[in-house]
Simulated assay, not measured.
Amino acid sequence: MEQLGFDFGVQPRRLMKVTPARLSTFDDCPRRYRLAYVDRPTPQRTGPWAHSTLGAVVHNALRELFDLPAAERTSARAAALVGAHWKDAGFADAEQAAEYRRIAKEWVADYVETHDVGADPRGLERWVSAPTSGDGGHASMIVEGRADRIDERDGELVIVDYKTGRRTPDEAEARSSQALALYAVAAERTLRTPCRRVELHHVPTGTVAAAEHTDESLRRQLTRAEETATDVQDATDKLSAGGDPDELFPARTGRRCSWCDFRPSCPVGQAAAPAARSWELLAPTRVDAAGADRPGGDGGDAGSFRAE
Rank of each mutant, 00 (worst) to 15 (best):
L4N: 10
G5M: 08
F8V: 13
P12C: 12
M16V: 15
M16S: 05
T19M: 03
P20C: 09
L23G: 00
T25N: 08
P30Y: 07
R31I: 02
Y33H: 08
R34V: 02
V38I: 13
D39Q: 14
R45M: 13
T46M: 12
G47Q: 07
G47Y: 04
A50M: 03
H51I: 03
S52Q: 07
T53A: 03
V57P: 02
H59R: 06
N60M: 05
L62W: 01
D67K: 15
L68H: 05
L68D: 01
R73K: 07
R73T: 00
S75F: 02
A79R: 00
A80Q: 03
L81P: 00
V82G: 01
A84T: 12
W86I: 02
D88R: 11
A89Y: 06
G90M: 05
F91A: 04
E95S: 08
Q96M: 15
A97P: 04
R102V: 01
R102Y: 01
G118M: 01
A119L: 12
A119Q: 15
P121M: 06
G123I: 02
G123E: 02
R126D: 07
V128R: 12
V128L: 08
S129M: 10
S129P: 05
D135W: 05
H138P: 03
H138A: 15
A139P: 10
M141F: 08
V143T: 14
R146A: 10
R149Y: 04
E152R: 14
V158S: 00
K163E: 03
P169H: 11
D170K: 13
E173M: 14
R175H: 11
S177D: 13
L180N: 14
A184T: 11
V185C: 06
V185M: 04
T190F: 09
L191M: 09
R192Q: 13
C195V: 12
R196H: 10
H201A: 15
H202D: 02
V208H: 03
A209S: 07
A211G: 11
E212Y: 05
H213K: 10
H213E: 12
T214R: 11
T214F: 12
D215Q: 14
R220H: 09
T223E: 13
T223I: 08
R224T: 08
T230S: 10
D231A: 14
Q233S: 12
T236V: 10
D237A: 08
K238W: 07
L239Y: 05
G242F: 07
G243K: 13
P245C: 04
D246A: 15
L248Q: 05
T253L: 15
C257N: 06
V268P: 00
G269D: 01
G269N: 08
A273R: 14
A276S: 14
W279V: 04
T285V: 05
R286W: 14
R286G: 05
D288V: 05
D288G: 09
A289W: 13
A290I: 11
A292R: 13
D293H: 13
R294W: 11
D298F: 06
G300Q: 09
D301H: 15
D301N: 15
R306D: 01
R306L: 03
